[in-house]
Structures are given as C-alpha cells and as structure tokens.
Amino acid sequence: MESESYGIMLLPIILGVVEVLKNVGLPKRFCPLVAVAIGIILGGIYLGSGDIKQGVLKGIYMGLSSVGMYSGAKNVIGR
C-alpha cells in the first residue's frame, strides 16, 4: 500500500518538473520522453521495493500517466 501512495504523490511531481523544464526551454516534443525518464528514476528509487525491474515498470507507468494527465487537463482547459 505504501508504494501505491508514493506513486500517486509522484505523478504531480513528475508533471511539475516537466512543466518547469518546458518553461526553461525544453521542446514540447521531448516532454513525454523526459516524463518517462523521470518516472523511471523515481520509480527505481521509491517504488522498487528491492526489485529494480518492478521499479522501472512502475516508473514507466507513472511517466506515461503524468503525460496523459497533462494532456487531459490541457484538453479540458482548451489551451
């Protein structure tokens, strides 16, 4: 249960870091790749539970989820 709550908390962190990098000059086309990379790193650190493969898979899931969260919010706001 603890790793699930970390995963939920890490999604907006990934989204925020990617948004900051985009404002600094990261091209928009690289944002999904950066989100997945950050997700893999954070997944390996916080969600691995001793198994690096599990952490990497959860990190990929988090990175892709944060990209989808951004896309969904963008579509709702209409930017």
Results as ranks from 00 to 15, higher is better:
37 A>S: 14
69 M>N: 02
34 V>T: 08
16 G>I: 05
62 M>I: 04
34 V>W: 09
45 I>A: 10
67 V>D: 00
26 L>Q: 07
13 I>A: 10
43 G>H: 03
41 I>D: 11
31 C>F: 06
72 G>V: 01
10 L>K: 01
71 S>G: 04
20 V>M: 12
42 L>D: 11
40 I>W: 03
19 E>R: 11
68 G>Y: 01
40 I>F: 07
19 E>K: 09
62 M>A: 05
34 V>R: 09
3 S>W: 12
36 V>I: 15
73 A>I: 10
17 V>Y: 04
29 R>V: 15
63 G>F: 02
51 D>K: 12
22 K>W: 10
13 I>M: 09
46 Y>N: 05
10 L>M: 11
72 G>P: 00
53 K>M: 14
21 L>Q: 04
19 E>C: 09
29 R>E: 15
67 V>Q: 00
41 I>E: 12
51 D>A: 11
75 N>S: 06
32 P>R: 04
53 K>E: 13
73 A>T: 03
41 I>A: 15
27 P>S: 10
31 C>N: 07
54 Q>H: 13
59 G>M: 01
5 S>W: 15
11 L>M: 11
60 I>V: 07
63 G>W: 00
56 V>R: 06
27 P>F: 08
41 I>M: 15
2 E>L: 14
60 I>K: 01
1 M>A: 12
37 A>K: 08
19 E>S: 12
32 P>Y: 07
69 M>A: 12
36 V>E: 11
34 V>Y: 10
6 Y>D: 11
44 G>N: 11
7 G>L: 06
5 S>N: 10
25 G>P: 09
15 L>M: 14
49 S>N: 14
51 D>W: 06
64 L>Y: 00
32 P>D: 08
79 R>S: 04
35 A>C: 05
38 I>D: 06
51 D>S: 12
49 S>V: 11
52 I>D: 03
7 G>M: 09
47 L>K: 00
12 P>Q: 05
10 L>D: 05
50 G>N: 09
46 Y>P: 02
37 A>F: 15
53 K>Q: 12
18 V>E: 06
20 V>D: 02
30 F>H: 14
21 L>N: 03
69 M>G: 03
14 I>Q: 01
5 S>Y: 15
76 V>S: 01
8 I>G: 04
23 N>P: 08
76 V>E: 01
23 N>S: 14
36 V>H: 07
13 I>F: 11
42 L>T: 04
57 L>Q: 06
25 G>M: 05
54 Q>I: 13
20 V>K: 06
27 P>K: 13
32 P>V: 04
58 K>R: 08
42 L>A: 12
31 C>P: 05
66 S>A: 03
56 V>M: 05
71 S>R: 10
14 I>S: 01
47 L>R: 02
27 P>E: 14
31 C>I: 09
9 M>D: 03
25 G>V: 08
67 V>R: 01
71 S>Y: 04
4 E>C: 11
59 G>H: 00
13 I>T: 09
70 Y>Q: 07
4 E>Q: 11
10 L>F: 04
27 P>C: 07
34 V>L: 13
50 G>F: 11
2 E>Q: 13
6 Y>R: 06
49 S>G: 10
33 L>W: 14
73 A>K: 00
64 L>E: 01
70 Y>L: 10
3 S>Y: 13
8 I>L: 13
61 Y>K: 03
74 K>N: 04
8 I>C: 05
74 K>A: 08
